[in-house]
Design a protein around this nucleic acid. Structure first.
Lengths: 205, 205, 205, 205
DNA sequence: TATGAATGAGACTTCATTCAT
DNA sequence: CATGAATGAAGTCTCATTCAT
């Protein structure tokens, strides 16, 4: 049940060529992630990304026709990993308690460190273009959907607005967690515990 | 009881010396706030701001020598209002309960709607320049300081890391509140109540 | 036989008013001279000049309708002083020897320190406008004329191209003197003597 | 025997990596030289330079990240040619007489016509930036160094201030020569001879 | 296919000059 | 007259994107 479809290209051509291309794409994405995380989406230039990846600007555009397209893939990638984690939690089904869910969600946010800062930067940028707009919506939907399904398990009593409101708050609180930890790395475990408890307390109402 | 200095006039910004100028500055700030809120800091162009304010680009630069200076003033303005609210809460002194504090903080975040989105956008931008960097730090310090003092009242038992960690989480949760409400305006009261309760539950541990 | 007409305005209005105005103009000119000397003609802004003079930009434009006009007056002022010095030398008439002339010219260049740097900066700027163009030509003409008349006294044997060529070289060498001294102030007297001798040797052929 | 480093390629300027680029850089430099010579450094706009070179503004900035960088390269190029000429003179060693030196220096100044006017304009500009400041210092040092070494050959008796002062005057007189000739082209040979004799007379004391 | 040069719209900022108060 | 706000053309520089080799 892994990551839906991601950016899978059609399956043809000989392995070596495909392999090299895949590696190249991975490099470029990593470079983009790093540069965007460091400078923010707008300030991250395509040239800087290419340089960071040790590629030429032409090469970069060979794989990503647009800056927005690059952002989109980053968003997708992150969304896929998020989806996997949510699915893993959902798989626990009835074994899922409020405590476990809270802990799992916090862990999920803190484990998904790769690309996260870049993704946040992209999400913050209001002008990432319509292509990224779609990916943004999808990422959002994935998270909302996962949270809603989890909540239905641990809080089967909630319906309508109460459920939506809880899901909403949960969503934003989760989003805030990495920032907190990044802000005070030396308090990482403390903050993690605090937030785990906070969420649990909050979810159970 | 206006917090610290003189709101924003103290920042690097050529102060208007005539009534006409004062009015124009207000217009420009409002326009900047609007445009930055809509497009994000980087994508907000000085030209667009001037147009929105019905002023010429030269007029804008008459009062704000830099885009960063403009951002700085916005930050300061917001910081001052925030400081006032925090001071009002602190003034309650021993009358302050966890519930009241929680309610007060949530209200504070939701009342300070003017400039808020723009301020967040500026805070998100990594390259708002060193001038804005200072204002950013100051705004942050104001909030942290206020929160810490409030916490010392309602949670005199907490010390060291525990206190810092709680303050940190609180800070980020507060910051998330307006986004939640903005996200689902029709659930405003529900979310407000939820978060009030969540914070109370969280503060009291 | 002092400074031809300089910038004398028509003689009317009461003294106090005229006096204040005269003072104001002098202040503005001094400020302009300073700023232009420091930054060069192009980089010297009208605003900076007004500030330096403790006047408002509007006030500056009251007296000088254009930046070029300001430059023109500066050129004129300098030209007048130059003319006076040249006339003083010419007054010696037959008492003038090569040595005295050389010494007198070097002294002239080194005494005329006020406005000199600014004047050079204006002369260097190729775009000081047609108004200043006229003043530039006049200043140049004054110097050339003076030199030619001086040379006719000490070198009555020279005619035509020989005279023109000598005058030309002399002109440029004189212009270079202040720069030399400014370059190595501690060698001022040495350089002064060197150049005096050099000019004498040169003039006598 | 090209003097120091590699002419100009060593300066801050994104080096072209294709033949096409090399040609364009040459064009751009020529255009810059022309425009700067015509209008002065400040008044020479990057746009005008690009147009003159038949290139787009972006193309210009591809190779010269700054107007100052462009100036720097021009300065360096000129300095290299100057250095070569000085070295050629120095190579004469003991065969060098005052007359030959004087003639050689005048010839050097009059031969180096390419870029000269532009270089002078750049040198005159007070705000060519720190990058150009360095190149300016280097150019100056090259000339001073060469002159000093030449003087040590023909005037081994001079020491200390006397030497420095002579070198200084020489420097400025050399700088003035092209202006003289440019001022009265029809007198070129006359002026050239005059100045050669003047310098000889001056150098020998 | 890979590379890097080319392009030009558009961003920020400056400044001479005008004008209302 | 004095003041300082208003104006906008123009300048430097950036960067996503295209294209020739």
């Amino acid at each position: 049940m892994s990551s839906q479809k991601s950016t899978a290209e059609s399956v043809e051509m000989r392995a070596p060529k495909r392999e090299r291309g895949r590696q190249r794409v991975a490099n470029l994405l990593a470079a983009a992630s790093k540069i965007i995380a460091e400078r923010g989406y707008d300030a991250a230039t395509m040239t800087a990304i290419a340089v960071e990846a040790g590629a030429s600007i032409g090469s970069l555009y060979q794989f990503f026709p647009t800056k927005a397209a690059l952002a989109e893939v980053l968003l997708d990638q992150y969304g896929a990993r998020l989806g996997d984690r949510l699915n893993a939690l959902l798989a626990l089904q009835t074994g899922l308690t409020t405590a476990k869910m809270s802990e799992g969600l916090v862990a999920m946010m803190l484990d998904l460190t790769a690309d996260r800062t870049a993704v946040m930067a992209i999400l913050d940028a209001r002008d990432a273009g319509p292509e990224a707009g779609e990916a943004r919506r999808q990422l959002r939907a994935r998270l909302e959907d996962g949270l809603e399904r989890l909540l239905r398990i641990v809080r089967p009593d909630l319906k309508g607005d109460a459920l939506v409101s809880l899901r909403l708050s949960l969503l934003y609180m989760l989003k805030a967690i990495p920032a907190m930890v990044g802000d005070a790395p030396q308090l990482a475990t403390q903050v993690r515990d605090d937030m785990t408890r906070a969420l649990a307390c909050y979810i159970s109402g």
